[in-house]
Nucleic acid binder design. Structure first.
Lengths: 345, 345
DNA sequence: GCGCTAGCTGGAAACGTTTCCAAAACGCGC
DNA sequence: GCGCGTTTTGGAAACGTTTCCAGCTAGCGC
């Protein structure tokens, strides 16, 4: 009966209205509704009944204002249209909503200044904490906003100088790329290029692995580039590499968004991926998995990263200071999928 | 100098502190900061200066509580990992943030009961309106929550019986599928199947177009199925169709998530897409665009849909009642891309 | 110089909640 | 029946803002 609804024309039902209806004091209603403090069974019954019959819904603004806790966490993400980042958000949300937190998600579209602005907005909204995967590691506005946050901050896959109090959840990009590069050497490649993302931790770790693998194998590195993680950049970089006098025989792509452009460029050049050119991608996406032959990939558990970030936040709220967490990546040459693709139906 | 930061150890800076510092009254500070009411140039200067030097940041909870407007809109989306829906969100956010609104995004993971719960949460948070793309058209909890919202509601691609006051932005799925089906007939197909999404407006419109096209061409419909929009469902449905005694020669997929599974199933059955089996997909994704041969697709402007939904909300806020908007879809056989793919590089 | 108006200004009230404190009620032992 | 400690209760204060209203000031016409 009217449950959850505010009366059609009337004003929203307040705690005062519930108190009146139940014939009790404001304090008692609050105690019943929040479950804090002790109340008699009779009181419990009367207040619950009144609240239900009026369709009372607490005003979270007022609650947050008074209690200084909104049970809300701000999630700052650089590009919501990237399914990988979306998966991280999904994992975090699962853990957080179980713990009674709701998530305020903002999307900066890859512009650092928007990141900074959104962080400010979330803080003015009194979020209890922030989980950030910003577009930049060094943007002064973003750093300043995070450093002055005054609430727990968890950064995913970013090193934020100037925000030492932030907890971090990192991917071990090194191991995955090391294995991938070695695999390329083992299958005979000697001219291996790396198209990396922007100059931030993930790209630097991948570059380090790329360099180390070359050094250990005694193969001179072909070359690498930093750049934005976009299909356009993938097309541009791979196009350039293929047009070179002596093009690479293998290209490692430091991000799933590059794959789309890379395939496009290869198709445009009449180069057959997997035969004329070996491609290695980072992060599992259908485009790579379903390509024939499948595109070998450095994998990681995105859902798990989101969950870890959420748990780090919860730990921080509980007063602990969780250590930096480094999560595994692994290389999947996808040789088995090859067989499946060629198998019987 | 301390801009945007709250003092390291101290309490957050309130409007009272600014008033004190500037040596003026509270009301004046509020007038300066909100820009409402008139103030002398001297007052403007003093308050601005004080606010700046203290690094004042308004508390949006308090502001919302008192003024009953949060300049915030709730966006309820069923599956954030779908890049298409993410694009709609992106388009809406662009328009809304320009108009001074910020977006609270929630993700239900496709579960209607979560949708309903999140809508309630947003309303208790006093959002000024809702834009919804829920997992279900008929879920009683969702309907009830929306019907009692008390704020403007804009629904995207959904018909919500019981929420007559909602504005709607729809896709004209009919036209696109009609053209696609005709194209299949023209290229000689006579056994065309339709794998549709859940029984909601988009799937029903597609089915109507599919049926009409068949009726007009005098071709008996091969058959259709409703079902969830997931890769798994795509694989299952296409697998079943291919195993039939007399399988279809063409399959229309009513959603991009189905394509992944469809390709997988076809590969598993040793069926060559584009030769043994024609596939038509809905909504442009890299997986279809970069497939060789490219997979013909019913396109639409997702960014534009988000923008339209945002504009409908802004109109509602301004007191207008925008009519239902129906946005175009069009069929792209992608014949030209074929040529590009085979061209010189 | 006076009265009137219009623009500014200060501060109280209000928004809906939680928190705190004092008072009331209760239970229990003797 | 009384005293004491404990639980339960009601309501004032507080959270940080906007809104409202009354009062002040300055300007201006006469």
């Amino acid at each position: 009966m009217g449950e959850g609804r505010r009366p059609p024309g009337g004003k929203p039902v307040s705690i005062t209205a519930v108190a009146e209806r139940a014939g009790v004091g404001l304090g008692s209603v609050s105690r019943v509704l929040t479950g804090k403090g002790s109340v008699s069974p009779e009181m419990l019954r009367r207040v619950r009944e009144a609240a239900e019959s009026l369709g009372y819904q607490p005003n979270l603004l007022a609650r947050g204002l008074r209690s200084r806790a909104t049970n809300t966490i701000g999630f700052v993400i650089s590009d919501i249209t990237n399914p990988l980042l979306a998966a991280i958000v999904g994992g975090a949300e699962a853990v957080l909503s179980e713990a009674g937190y709701s998530v305020l998600l903002t999307n900066s579209g890859g512009r650092p200044e928007v990141d900074a602005q959104r962080i400010g907005l979330l803080l003015r909204r009194q979020v209890d904490g922030l989980i950030v995967l910003p577009a930049s590691e060094g943007d002064p506005g973003t750093i300043a906003a995070l450093a002055g946050a005054g609430v727990p901050v968890v950064a995913i896959d970013r090193e934020l100088p100037g925000v030492p109090e932030a907890s971090v959840v990192l991917s071990d990009h090194y191991t995955g790329i090391l294995a991938a590069t070695r695999h390329l050497f083992e299958t005979g490649h000697r001219r291996v290029a790396l198209v990396a993302g922007p100059d931030m931790r993930p790209a630097r770790e991948r570059l380090r692995a790329y360099s180390d693998a070359h050094a250990r194998a005694g193969v001179p590195p072909f070359g690498f580039t930093f750049g934005p993680l976009s299909p356009a950049r993938g097309a541009e970089a791979v196009g350039e590499l293929l047009r070179a006098a002596e093009p690479p025989t293998a290209i490692i792509l430091g991000g799933n968004q590059l794959l789309e452009g890379a395939i496009e460029a290869a198709q445009g050049s009449g180069v057959a991926i997997g035969r004329d050119l070996a491609l290695v991608c980072c992060d599992d996406i259908p485009l790579g998995r379903l390509h024939r032959p499948p595109i070998p990939t450095v994998m990681r558990d995105t859902d798990g990263m989101g969950r870890s970030a959420a748990r780090a936040f919860l730990a921080r709220i509980a007063g602990e200071t969780p250590p930096a967490e480094v999560m595994a990546t692994w290389f999947d040459s996808r040789a088995d999928q090859d067989r499946v693709g060629a198998g019987s139906g």
